Amino acid sequence: MGSPQFPGDGKYELRLHALAANPKIAARVHFRGHSEDPASALRDADIALHTSLRPEPFGQVIVEAMAAGTPIVAASNAGAIEWLTPGSDCTTYTMGDARGLARQVSHLLAQPDEARRIAKNARLTAESLSVKEIGPRIENELIVAAGPSA
């Protein structure tokens, strides 16, 4: 899903397309490109993978997938892990470890009850990160950081 967003990502996308052309998996891998309705695309997915090769401070796609009720596999050393609970609202692998990623995907596909439990918890985590919930927390942090008014 999606399309390259950063300089140099086009080469990575081409590599992914070449790997996905393998006859063993070609029928099961779909590249959807840019979507104006990512929530719908994420609801249709069995699992959402966050496979960034560089740490990201928040990872918006992770929250979007969680809000859509889609189980997430994310890199354990990505910035987003700070607000996730592996084993509860996501599963993790070490960034760049393709075998580890494959193990997590295989596990969720083989354990649909666990995938549903993780997706349910993920939705709750996403709700706690909504603007309605997080806005007042940020505002309070800014007030505390500013200190007493003169």
Score class of each variant (00 low, 15 high):
residue 30 H to V: 11
residue 31 F to C: 03
residue 31 F to K: 01
residue 32 R to D: 01
residue 32 R to N: 03
residue 32 R to C: 01
residue 33 G to W: 06
residue 33 G to C: 04
residue 35 S to L: 02
residue 35 S to A: 06
residue 37 D to N: 12
residue 38 P to M: 11
residue 39 A to N: 06
residue 39 A to S: 13
residue 39 A to W: 01
residue 41 A to H: 05
residue 42 L to K: 09
residue 42 L to Q: 13
residue 43 R to K: 15
residue 43 R to I: 00
residue 44 D to A: 15
residue 44 D to Q: 12
residue 45 A to N: 02
residue 45 A to I: 04
residue 45 A to F: 08
residue 46 D to C: 05
residue 47 I to P: 10
residue 48 A to F: 15
residue 49 L to D: 01
residue 49 L to A: 03
residue 53 L to N: 09
residue 54 R to I: 08
residue 54 R to Q: 11
residue 57 P to E: 13
residue 58 F to K: 10
residue 58 F to P: 03
residue 59 G to D: 01
residue 59 G to L: 06
residue 61 V to W: 05
residue 62 I to H: 06
residue 62 I to K: 07
residue 62 I to A: 05
residue 64 E to D: 13
residue 65 A to K: 04
residue 68 A to E: 07
residue 69 G to Q: 10
residue 70 T to L: 02
residue 70 T to A: 03
residue 71 P to M: 11
residue 73 V to T: 05
residue 73 V to L: 11
residue 74 A to P: 00
residue 74 A to F: 01
residue 74 A to G: 02
residue 74 A to Q: 00
residue 74 A to I: 11
residue 74 A to C: 09
residue 75 A to W: 00
residue 75 A to T: 04
residue 75 A to N: 02
residue 77 N to C: 02
residue 79 G to T: 12
residue 80 A to K: 08
residue 80 A to P: 04
residue 83 W to T: 13
residue 85 T to P: 04
residue 85 T to A: 15
residue 86 P to F: 05
residue 87 G to V: 09
residue 87 G to R: 07
residue 87 G to T: 10
residue 87 G to D: 07
residue 88 S to E: 14
residue 88 S to H: 14
residue 88 S to Y: 12
residue 89 D to K: 10
residue 89 D to W: 12
residue 90 C to F: 05
residue 91 T to F: 09
residue 91 T to I: 08
residue 91 T to H: 10
residue 91 T to M: 14
residue 92 T to C: 13
residue 92 T to H: 04
residue 93 Y to D: 00
residue 93 Y to E: 01
residue 94 T to G: 04
residue 96 G to W: 08
residue 96 G to D: 05
residue 96 G to A: 04
residue 97 D to F: 05
residue 97 D to T: 07
residue 99 R to A: 15
residue 99 R to S: 15
residue 100 G to H: 07
residue 103 R to S: 08
residue 103 R to L: 06
residue 103 R to V: 04
residue 104 Q to H: 02
residue 104 Q to W: 06
residue 104 Q to P: 02
residue 104 Q to T: 01
residue 105 V to W: 10
residue 106 S to W: 00
residue 107 H to Y: 15
residue 108 L to Y: 05
residue 109 L to S: 02
residue 110 A to C: 06
residue 110 A to I: 06
residue 112 P to D: 14
residue 113 D to S: 14
residue 113 D to N: 14
residue 117 R to L: 12
residue 118 I to M: 13
residue 118 I to C: 13
residue 119 A to M: 06
residue 120 K to F: 09
residue 120 K to W: 05
residue 121 N to Y: 10
residue 123 R to V: 03
residue 124 L to H: 15
residue 124 L to W: 12
residue 125 T to M: 11
residue 125 T to D: 09
residue 125 T to I: 07
residue 126 A to I: 10
residue 127 E to A: 13
residue 127 E to D: 13
residue 129 L to M: 14
residue 129 L to P: 01
residue 129 L to N: 07
residue 131 V to P: 03
residue 131 V to I: 15
